[in-house]
């Protein structure tokens, strides 16, 4: 599965990068690379089974705390 993942992300890079290089769109290339890296590392970590805390839990926590404060303030 990791192999499939690498191939997929490789294909994405192969699809976009040559065009960007040809057109000399360095800024776009940088942006592409950063988003690509974020997505790739995230998916790799997930696939390897690393436990990442889900951001929604954080959101839930913050909202609940805020709601308590709100109610407490009243």
């Amino acid at each position: 599965m990791v192999f499939l993942l690498v191939v997929t992300f490789g294909a994405i890079a192969l699809y976009e990068v040559p065009g960007l290089v040809r057109e000399k769109l360095w800024r776009e290339l940088a942006a592409f690379t950063s988003v690509w890296l974020v997505a790739f590392s995230l998916s790799l970590l997930l696939m390897l089974g690393v436990k990442l805390p889900s951001p929604t839990e954080g959101i839930e926590y913050v909202i609940k705390q805020a709601a308590q404060l709100w109610k407490g303030g009243k």
Binding site: T8, F9, I12, Y15, E16, G19, L20, L25, R27, E28, L29, A30, A31, F32, V35, W36, V38, A39, F40, L42, S43, L46, L52, S54, P55, T56
Partner: peptide, 26 residues
């Protein structure tokens, strides 16, 4: 990021979207 076109970002953002949709919810 001040890019000229958003198209190069489409595929990586899509990958990010899929990853997020798996990661965000148990």
């Amino acid at each position: 990021m001040g890019l000229k076109t958003y198209r190069p970002l489409v595929l990586p953002v899509g990958a990010l979207l899929v990853v997020l949709s798996i990661w965000l919810f148990d």
